[in-house]
Amino acid sequence: MRLRAVFIPILGMAAATETCSAAPLQDALHAYGIQAWHIGRLWNFTLGLCVLVFSAVVAAFLFALWRAPRSDAQTPPDLSSLERPERRIHRTVAWAAGLATLGLLALLAADVFTSRALGRLPLQDAVNIELIGHQWWWEARYLDPDANRQFTTANELHIPVGRPVIVTLRSDDVIHTLWVPNLHGKRDMIPGRTATMQFRADQPGTYRGQCAEFCGLEHAMMALLVEAEPNAQYEAWAERQRQPAPALDAGPAGDAARRGRALFLAHSCARCHTINGTGATAAMGPDLTHLAGRKTIAAGMLPNDTKHLASWIRDPQTLKPGVYMPVNRMRPDELQDLLAYLETLK
Rank of each mutant, 00 (worst) to 15 (best):
G192P: 01
R87C: 08
Q233S: 15
P77K: 06
G98Y: 00
R67E: 00
L49N: 05
E86F: 11
L107C: 04
P332E: 00
G33A: 09
S81N: 09
A282N: 04
A299W: 02
L248N: 03
M221S: 10
A299C: 10
Q124F: 14
N276D: 15
L263W: 08
D202Y: 01
A201F: 02
H184S: 14
D287P: 07
D305R: 11
A266W: 01
C211S: 13
D125Y: 03
R84T: 14
Q124N: 14
L169Y: 01
R242W: 04
A94M: 15
R163V: 00
L118F: 09
R271A: 14
E86P: 09
K295Y: 05
V165N: 08
A140S: 01
A96G: 02
L99T: 15
E18R: 14
R4A: 14
D188N: 09
D202L: 09
N128T: 15
M13P: 04
A14G: 08
Q203E: 15
P230S: 11
V165E: 10
M189A: 12
A64V: 05
C272E: 01
V127D: 00
S71R: 10
T274H: 05
A64G: 05
T344Y: 01
P332A: 05
V167C: 01
H176T: 03
A126Q: 11
E343Q: 15
P321Y: 09
A340E: 04
G133Q: 04
A147I: 12
K346P: 06
I297H: 02
A340I: 04
A15P: 05
H134A: 09
T344I: 01
R240I: 07
G277C: 04
A280L: 00
I132D: 07
L25M: 12
L104P: 03
L169A: 04
A310H: 05
Q150S: 08
A147N: 10
M189I: 07
R41G: 07
T306L: 15
E213R: 13
I39C: 07
A340C: 12
A195S: 08
R314V: 13
F214L: 12
T318Q: 15
G103W: 02
L302K: 06
L107G: 03
Y324A: 15
I159M: 06
